[in-house]
Design a protein around this nucleic acid. Structure first.
Lengths: 223, 223
DNA sequence: GTTTAATATGACAAGTGTGTGACAAATCTG
DNA sequence: CAGATTTGTCACACACTTGTCATATTAAAC
């Protein structure tokens, strides 16, 4: 859960970001202009601050400059124009990222997450998650979520699935799978793979469709 | 060139978006209600889908939910009035962006471009695809696409086609094909090749023309 | 235009690869 | 150490693939 400050004079912009952010479990504060944003930033610690450039009383750049005097809070700028000099100017003042209007709320949230993740690199490991429809895979956490429910895979099933997914859309021979998933020192039967593919498929439920058989070759995770 | 689906019961809306989008070189498909949109989304892959919220038979949100079950196509929602922002809970269902009516077609197109660009950058792990007219061949994924539809080839057919294509515009003798595709230890009939060429040609549909017979010699993939 | 040789095609039987359930060996866990 | 889980092997069934052959069609040579 992050503490987010969004400063924009347009209510619509603030609201749409608030909705997205709150849905993701963050706490959102609003400021209607640069001056108010600076005041709020002085009073409390935010995880991230989003500033529109064009604001009454105090514009985004000036607000950024003010805030930087006292805090290192990551700042994202919203700009209506995409002119390059704006960007260069902004980065010199310690802006962490830019979003040019029109933007999608999803994009803003994605950038928020990216920046906070980047800045807290000292702390917890975030863990990369990939998602294919209702199938979510987190490599570092080593878990697989199917339609919201955690799947219960055996170690080999994890290994096999992870290797398939990391090489998605690539045709993998049985030999390659044996070498990479089982190890070069495995001297077993080819058909071992079939059995594990079978069990993996059973565990993936509707998403077994992603694992396609390449007759005479091996398998492929196809998206 | 993107493939765009616009679902709205108002013909005017569909038309104005179509005009702009086609002007930018995109391909536009129309649906008059949510139900039709879902059906179309199931049948083909769009680069983006635009859904009006208020539609007969199936509203935009429900349509979005349905589509999300099977596809990750980016979705933009159109809402009739800004008051509807209050009711917007679309982000729960993976809506990528909203546009509030009245909107300018230009704005919609700008958002389409922004979203597709963002989604494209996600980076697909797919090998290089070679394309000859409507015949696409991806060696690493080991698949062959004919006019947008995946072809279903047997192992030998893949091997044979891949060898021909990798040596395109080169005359290949039967002996060479036997050695390279079947293996040096194959002691069968020459004419076996003919049969496989036949089946390959049948599977390539209109693109059988690329495989030319060199009488008294062998075959060639000619482009 | 006829002959001759090579290729295309359809049918088919033998061969091969894969999905699956069962089971025993191996490994993990308390 | 016992019980549970995981893992590898096997055998069977079935569907698909493959090579061969006989016949039809086509192209080149005379």
């Amino acid at each position: 859960m992050y503490k987010i400050l969004i400063a924009d004079d347009e209510q619509k912009i603030r609201e749409v970001i608030r909705e997205y952010a709150e849905y993701e479990g963050h706490e959102v504060f609003e400021a209607v202009d640069g001056m108010q944003a600076v005041e709020m930033a002085k009073e409390q610690d935010f995880d991230i601050i989003i500033l529109d450039i064009m604001m009454p009383r105090l514009d985004g750049f000036s607000a950024c400059k003010e805030i930087r005097k006292i805090k290192d809070t990551p700042i994202i700028m919203l700009s209506a124009r995409s002119e390059e000099y704006d960007k260069l100017f902004g980065f010199e003042m310690g802006v962490d990222d830019y979003v040019v209007k029109p933007f999608s709320p999803k994009e803003v949230l994605a950038r928020i997450n990216a920046i906070i993740k980047r800045n807290r690199s000292a702390g917890e490991a975030a863990g990369e998650t990939v998602k294919f429809e209702g199938l979510e895979i987190n490599f570092t956490a080593r878990d697989v979520i199917i339609d919201g429910e955690k799947a219960n895979l055996t170690p080999k099933e994890y290994d096999l699935l992870f290797y398939l997914v990391k090489n998605k859309n690539i045709a993998l021979t049985r030999n390659r799978l044996l070498e990479e998933v089982w190890g070069y020192d495995f001297f077993g039967d080819d058909r071992t793979i079939d059995t594990h593919i079978k069990m993996l498929r059973n565990n993936l439920g509707p998403y077994r469709k992603f694992i396609v058989t390449l007759r005479g070759m091996g398998y492929k995770f196809e998206v």
